[in-house]
């Protein structure tokens, strides 16, 4: 059974339906990518999974439990954490405080060890612990955002546009870390507009269009799929 199963989920904002029957599966210890252009509902999907938005119908099962209408703080406690779109770090608080807050859902005794582990993964943050998070560079803020999510000891880590606004070198660094986080035992669901980078690390991928899944399959196949190449990788790109 997959760690996360999203089945026929509908989400509406007022009268407008943003997700119109979306389904996907995230197997344990996989990296699954969700691709698609602006405004197709990728972030809405991530927020629905994390319990920020309620769902209108359908079901979301995580680790065998129905979480479709669970509260966001309950979901984090079940082991599902997100590095959200726009990072949403606590800019006026220190890097250390941001990381402590990341671990607020787990018993206090475990946070020290998790902090060491996060800093080992993101050594740049070590020298910045007492600095205000808002004073970090964009790439460092993204790393802080991921490190903060890891402080919740997640079984499933959701990443919403981790590459947005970052230099190619930093994007590569972040995707290398994503692979490493998976290799250390976590499962990852990643939303990206940078399809090329995402397909390189993902096992499977889904393409969202108009609040529904348009195409899905193994990442390697999608990277060769002409429709995906035309729409997301630029028509001229070779998919391998």
């Amino acid at each position: 059974m997959a760690l996360l199963e999203v089945r026929d989920v509908h989400v509406a904002m007022g009268a407008q339906e943003i997700l119109r029957g979306i389904s996907l599966e995230v197997p344990e210890r996989a990296i699954v990518a969700v691709l698609g252009g602006n405004g197709v509902g990728k972030t809405t999907l991530m927020r629905a999974i994390s319990g920020i938005y309620g769902i209108k119908s359908g079901e979301i099962r995580f680790d065998g439990r129905e979480i479709g209408n669970a509260k966001s703080h309950e979901i984090v406690r079940l082991g599902l954490a997100q590095a959200p779109e726009g990072r949403q770090i606590f800019g006026t608080m220190t890097v250390r405080e941001n990381l402590q807050l990341g671990g607020i859902a787990i018993p206090p005794g475990e946070t020290a060890a998790l902090l060491d582990k996060s800093l080992e993964l993101f050594p740049v943050l070590k020298a910045r612990l007492t600095q205000k998070a808002g004073s970090l560079s964009g790439g460092e803020q993204q790393m802080l955002c991921i490190a903060r999510a890891l402080m919740a000891k997640p079984k499933l880590l959701l990443l919403d546009e981790p590459s947005l606004g970052l230099a190619p070198k930093v994007v590569k660094l972040i995707f290398d870390l994503v692979k490493r986080i998976r290799d250390e035992g976590a499962t990852i669901l990643i939303v990206e507009q940078n399809a090329k980078a995402a397909l390189k690390v993902a096992d499977t991928a889904y393409v969202v269009e108009g609040g529904k899944i348009a195409v899905s399959g193994p990442a390697a196949d999608l990277a060769r799929d002409q429709r995906v190449i035309d729409a997301y990788l630029g028509g001229h790109a070779k998919g391998h």
């Binding site: 994390s50 920020i52 509260k71 966001s72 703080h73 979901i75 984090v76 406690r77 954490a81 997100q82 959200p84 949403q88 770090i89 606590f90 800019g91 006026t92 608080m93 807050l101 990341g102 607020i104 859902a105 903060r148 999510a149 402080m151 919740a152």
Partner: peptide, 13 residues
């Protein structure tokens, strides 16, 4: 500081 960030780390607002 950031309500959305607070909800994402698991704070009961």
């Amino acid at each position: 500081n950031n309500v959305l960030g607070a909800r994402h780390v698991g704070i009961d607002t």
